[in-house]
Design a binder for these strands. Structure first.
Lengths: 93, 93
DNA sequence: TCTATATTTGTCCTTTTTAGGACAAGACCA
DNA sequence: TGGTCTTGTCCTAAAAAGGACAAATATAGA
């Protein structure tokens, strides 16, 4: 989810991975992996990416979090029940 | 969530932590911490506990997973949005 | 009250897992 | 070709799991 979004944003900005990599001070392979959900995106990097792509961090954060949750529950038999329980729990608070 | 449930089940069975600890081959402090959500419950342990308490693992698994999700999203600003995204994602599949 | 048993809490340690990232090499265009 | 992107492997460092132990607290019964 997040990876695809990051790729879209980068392309919308007309940037090439090398430029993003330079900004984050990592190599291009790392960016590629982020965009393919093969490496987790740290909050630090997320913030930089938001700035670079001219979106607010708040636009990215829900997707970022959803990604983490998804990874946790995928392949789990009771994911739906679990998610609904958590949703209730979180909503009532 | 899970901790409370485990405690209830244990008491319903009239067991004392020492007995459960013996069954899982850990010490009582460990059981106590599980019941207070201070230590994660491994799947291996969960299975043993289900058997010991005469419930099906399926009764425990959703709670077990919900606990993990909850821990991931609590204190997160966009937990609700994220959970809803994941729920949609998982449901459609 | 005294005491034994049950539980909780804090600290510590070791092992396993995950994050974060580099590098090299291959693939894909154009 | 040259630039872009992808993929695989490797490494180190940080974090989490799993668990022991000791000490402190509750708690129920004699």
């Amino acid at each position: 989810m997040l990876g695809e979004k990051l790729k879209e944003l980068r392309e919308a900005k007309g940037l090439v991975q090398r430029q993003v990599a330079a900004d984050l001070q990592v190599d291009t392979a790392y960016i590629s992996k982020m965009e393919h959900n093969e490496k987790p995106v740290s909050r630090k990097h997320l913030k930089k990416l938001a700035k670079l792509y001219s979106v607010t961090e708040n636009e990215l954060l829900p997707i970022w979090l959803a990604d983490k949750v998804l990874q946790l529950v995928e392949n789990e038999k009771y994911s739906i029940q679990a998610l609904e329980m958590v949703l209730n729990n979180v909503k009532e608070k």
